[in-house]
Simulated assay, not measured.
Amino acid sequence: MIKGAGGVFVPADEMFLNSLIAFENGGLYEIEIKKNNNPKLHRKLFAFFKFCFDHYNAENGDMAFANEAKQFNYFRKRLTILAGFFDEFVDFDTGEIRKEAQSLAWDKMDDIERGECLSAVINAALKYVFKNTTDENVINRLYAFF
């Protein structure tokens, strides 16, 4: 969310507008607010996630009819895991080891850790999302993130 004029919070991305429709105007809600330590880098990372997500969906249309915000969150978490930022848990029912994406908590990272995190996400995206890309427009947009 981004705080706008008059103290009004608006979604940072249009895809999350539909999530707010269920809340009635004038309703009273309890929320937890966390301020990002480095909002510019956070916006850049989420813009990169969104760019990757859009490219992935264009190539893999099998998720085209699901809720976009849920798809994006799943995709973002999956790419975070591929970048190496995850915790492992044992499923006691099956005995399988499950990976769960870590929160990319910028406020708990120093500048070096943030840079390493961003680099790992970019490398994971290049390997798994853009692996065979030859489209010059996509490649140019990728360079714009670096």
Rank of each mutant, 00 (worst) to 15 (best):
G4Q: 12
G6N: 08
V8K: 03
V8Q: 05
F9E: 01
P11L: 00
A12I: 06
D13R: 02
D13F: 00
E14C: 02
F16E: 07
S19M: 12
E24D: 12
G26E: 03
Y29L: 03
E32A: 09
I33Y: 05
I33C: 04
K34R: 08
N36C: 11
N38S: 07
N38A: 04
L41A: 07
F46T: 10
F46N: 10
F48K: 03
F48H: 03
F48M: 11
F49L: 11
F49V: 02
K50P: 12
F51C: 02
C52K: 09
F53I: 06
H55L: 14
Y56C: 08
E59I: 15
D62S: 11
M63V: 13
A64W: 08
F65A: 12
N67H: 10
E68S: 08
A69W: 09
K70E: 14
Q71K: 13
N73T: 01
N73Q: 10
Y74M: 14
Y74G: 13
R76A: 07
K77E: 14
T80P: 01
T80R: 00
A83S: 04
G84D: 08
F85H: 14
D91L: 08
D93G: 15
T94I: 07
G95H: 08
E96Y: 15
I97K: 09
K99M: 12
A101E: 00
Q102V: 13
W106K: 04
M109R: 06
M109L: 11
R114P: 10
R114M: 14
L118P: 00
I122C: 14
Y128E: 09
K131L: 03
N132S: 14
T133A: 04
T133E: 02
D135Y: 05
I139S: 01
N140W: 01
N140Q: 05
R141N: 11
L142P: 03
L142W: 04
F146K: 11
